[in-house]
Design a protein around this nucleic acid. Sequence first.
DNA 1: GTCTATATAGCGATAGAC
DNA 2: GTCTATCGCTATATAGAC
Lengths: 180, 180
Amino acid sequence: MPRPPRAKEGVLDAYERLLIDEGERAATLEATARAAGVSKGGLLYHFGSKEDLAAGLLDRLSDLVDADVQRMETAEEGAVAYYLRTSVMIDDPLDRALIATSRLAQGGHAAATAALNAVRRRWAATIAPRVRDEAALDLVMMLSDGLYFNNALGGDGGDRLVPDDQRMRALIALVLKATS
Amino acid sequence: MPRPPRAKEGVLDAYERLLIDEGERAATLEATARAAGVSKGGLLYHFGSKEDLAAGLLDRLSDLVDADVQRMETAEEGAVAYYLRTSVMIDDPLDRALIATSRLAQGGHAAATAALNAVRRRWAATIAPRVRDEAALDLVMMLSDGLYFNNALGGDGGDRLVPDDQRMRALIALVLKATS
DNA sequence: GTCTATATAGCGATAGAC
DNA sequence: GTCTATCGCTATATAGAC
């Protein structure tokens, strides 16, 4: 498959950034074009419609998840610890794509919702054989979603509840003890 | 305090429903008015602006949380089990207000984000003295957020990951064992 | 491949009749 | 207290020059 043009990736980066930092409402074609340093017309040459732009983000997410599942399966610390630990990153390309997609989903975008559910299903399939039982799987999956949710809310203040590094280590230790 | 007019509550119900079922983008004044069976002008008599409508939702949320914290503190099953169990309801008035507010927050509404953080802080203060340590508190809070997040994604299909009743009981038992 | 200009539609909000 | 009509603005998308 041919490497996609540089400008296209830049537009996608800008779209992602707007979704994350300012919400779905602010991620208009005009704002995205401006942030990417092109005109509205230029953007619409690469992505024929707003729907097309969203589809581009979903494709990117799918590719990044492929790579992540592979890293997860071979992680030294174990798949569960890896999965929980990487649930709170914020500048990782995968996390950016995920948070941007969840903004889209909560704005009512059906395809984005479906994509997120598909992603979580892939993760669950990877975690399932590594934990004790169904309740342990539910615990790990829902906990990870909670960490993401808090990350995704973020934005403004130091007013959030996301655990810092030290607390994350304690949390992961507690979960490993309860589930493996 | 005087009981607020019936029409006002109906508009708020419609606004909430649109936010939950179709996302922030779809919850316009016109759509809200139509769903509530009034005209745009009629709606704007009760809520002077869109911002005012959002503030109405935040007020409703705050009142519902007051009542919830009291139920939580006196729950027979214990505060933690009550808190987790009620994280997956979907037609409870409190859950509806919460999910609608989280839609607003993820659409970039700063006051909604602040309101959600304030709510979670109140819950955390109620849970904290009932669990073993900080990691246990983080576990319960993030897990609850994950359950909410999955509820909030919802919408369409049976394509979701939210545990059913039986799995919830097993999950709660596991968490109680790990945290108390 | 990227631009400017423009068509079309829908949003939040105001004014004034009833 | 609720309506209709309308203003001003901004959004997506198209057309056509370069």
